[in-house]
Each structure stands twice: as structure tokens, then as C-alpha cells.
Design a binder for these strands. Structure first.
Length: 300
DNA sequence: CACCATGTTCCTTG
DNA sequence: CCAAGGAACATGGT
């Protein structure tokens, strides 16, 4: 489920559902996802603790709790990896197949399930320190973005996946933002013109904000047990009651017609990750020919 | 069987 | 020391 918008939507739901709940049991089915804390320390810190709030930082979930013994504040840090989900299940029901950790309350449990077990649930806050600014926050300015892109010859799309540039931008929305900004994903990051940086800045914020807004309109379904939770974008399950139209403009649409110019969306690989773009409606790398700036393509 | 998948970290190479 | 590239992690879907 996991990029900034999906985590944000989840956090908004959990914030309401978890407030005031007290942890009665901690069932760790996959010890590795609690690294580096470990199951014993995690259990010891969480037993009896009460949820105070839930926030997001990049793709990380931050659960604030109050310990039962000394009333000290505890940060529980979650990350969904590639395939993580968090759903409520009635207490006493069998846990889903790929449950990593279950936090058991009086009446139900919060189940962190993750088939690939790339996710994390731990007390380790250290990864948060390496994150760049929130793309939807005040510190993420065009000037900042230009600076963050200016010291690398890597493809701009690869740079966008670096969480120290903008925390929470992932593989899907990196392609989406570049498409919106009409910038070719393989352009060297340091080669963008200031106007392009600004267009990219706007596009990043726009695609993320739109995704959060759309996701938030989808009713969350915590039924579990084969039912879908209604979250989110591509990979809609057949039969899922979702009346929203396809919201991704390029991601996963290789070979299909570009929604903007009718050209063909192409898939490439940058930094080892699938990348989608429309070569026909990209404004195209400025080229210097005999001292005269020319554009390789004209906009449709 | 082959290939692909929303992410992060670690190791190697230059 | 740093930047960049690739493997590893583990499982499921097509």
C-alpha cells in the first residue's frame, strides 16, 4: 500500500480508531519485522500502554503511546514496506496468514500483515533522522528542491526516490509527478532549468495532495478476512465497490495511449525501478547548439 | 517456469 | 570519504 498518500490515509483512519486503546497483548509472529528492537523489548515497552496519537513522517507511521507503569511517552515506529497493511480484526479470530505483529486490545486487534515482510514495527526512531522535508510541508520549497537536485548527475527520477530529497515520494508518484511536469525521468537531476524545478515542485505536491484527497474519500473497510479495505489506487480488486476512475496517468500504463497527447506510454528502468513516461509530451532536454538554446520537441 | 511488484539497506566498485 | 549501481530481503500475482 505504501507511499506517502497511502500512509497518510491510513494514519488518518488509525488516529481515530486507536485513540485511547490499551494494548493487552503483543503477538509477534515474525520477529524480523521488529528489528532492531526485537520481540521481547517491543512487548515489554508496549504491554499495558495506551495510544495517544498517530502521525506520519515520510512513509513511516509514528504511534505515540503512554506506558502503563511510569506514564512515559513511547514512540512506536511502523513502515509498511512494499506490501504491508494494518487492519482491525475482532479479538479471538484467527490471524491472517501473513501477520507480522498483532497488537491485542480488549475487543479487537490491530493486525500488521505483510506477505513479503519488508515492513517494520519497532521502537527505532533512527531512520526518521535521515528523512528530508515533507513534500507537502513548508520546508519543501522550489529553492530547496533545486538545491537537493543540483548536486547529482543521477536521473531526476532516481533522485526523487531518495528519501532525503522529499520524504514519502515513491516509485509510483515519482513517475506521476514527472509526467505532470513534462520532464523526462532520465534527465540528469542537476540539468533541470529553474522553471523545470518549479514545475516539478508543483507537480509533486499536486499528485500527492490529489492522491490523499482521493484516498480519503474511499471508505475504509476493516473487515479483513478476504474483504478488501477499499484502499486505494491501482490494483483495484474486481468486485471492489470503487467507483473512482483510474487515477494514475502513466504508472503501469506501458503501451497505452497517453491521456494528454495520445502517444504511447513507455516503460523504462532507472535505478533498477520501473519508470513510466510519455516521450511525446515531454518538453525535452534543453540542448545547446552553437550557443543557441533549442528544444528537441515542441509541446503538443 | 519466467518475470514483475508501492521499499530500504547493505555491499561493492570506481 | 563519497557517489552510484546492484543484490538481498520474501512472497504472491500474472
Amino acid at each position: 500500500m505504501p507511499e506517502l498518500p497511502e500512509v497518510e490515509v491510513l494514519v488518518r483512519a488509525l488516529r481515530v480508531s486507536l485513540r485511547g486503546k490499551r494494548i493487552r497483548d503483543v503477538r509477534v509472529q515474525r520477529p524480523k519485522v521488529t528489528r532492531p528492537t526485537g520481540p521481547e523489548r517491543l512487548r515489554e515497552a508496549l504491554l499495558g500502554a495506551e495510544f495517544l496519537g498517530v502521525t506520519r513522517r515520510g512513509k513511516y507511521l509514528k504511534f505515540q503511546l503512554r506506558a502503563s507503569r511510569d506514564a512515559r511517552r513511547v514512540w512506536l515506529i511502523g513502515h509498511l514496506g512494499m506490501t504491508g497493511r494494518m487492519v482491525f480484526r475482532p479479538r479471538g479470530e484467527p490471524l491472517p496468514k501473513h501477520t507480522a505483529v498483532a497488537l491485542v486490545f480488549d475487543d479487537d486487534s490491530l493486525v500488521f500483515e505483510d506477505p513479503r515482510y519488508f515492513g517494520r514495527l519497532s521502537l527505532d526512531t533512527e531512520p526518521l533522522a535521515r528523512l528530508g522535508p515533507e513534500p507537502l510541508g513548508r520546508d519543501f520549497t522550489p529553492g530547496y528542491l533545486g538545491d537537493a537536485l543540483s548536486r547529482s548527475s543521477q536521473p531526476v527520477k532516481v533522485r526523487l526516490l531518495d528519501q532525503s530529497v522529499g520524504a514519502g515520494v515513491g516509485n509510483i508518484y515519482a513517475s506521476e509527478a514527472l509526467f505532470r511536469a513534462r520532464i523526462a525521468p532520465d534527465r540528469p537531476a542537476r540539468g533541470l532549468e529553474p522553471a523545470e524545478v518549479r514545475a516539478l515542485w508543483r507537480a509533486i505536491r499536486r499528485v500527492l495532495r490529489e492522491a490523499v484527497a482521493w484516498g480519503s474519500t474511499v471508505p475504509l473497510d476493516w473487515a479483513g478476512a478476504g474483504a478488501r479495505d477499499g484502499l486505494f489506487y491501482y490494483g483495484r480488486a474486481p468486485g471492489t465497490p470503487d467507483d473512482h476512475e483510474e487515477r494514475l496517468r502513466v504508472y503501469g500504463r506501458a503501451g497505452q495511449a497517453c491521456l494528454r497527447c495520445g502517444g504511447v506510454i513507455v516503460r523504462s528502468v532507472l535505478g533498477g525501478r520501473a519508470t513510466y513516461s510519455c516521450p511525446d509530451c515531454v518538453l525535452g532536454p534543453p540542448q545547446v547548439a552553437q550557443g543557441i538554446m533549442v528544444s528537441s520537441k515542441s509541446p503538443p
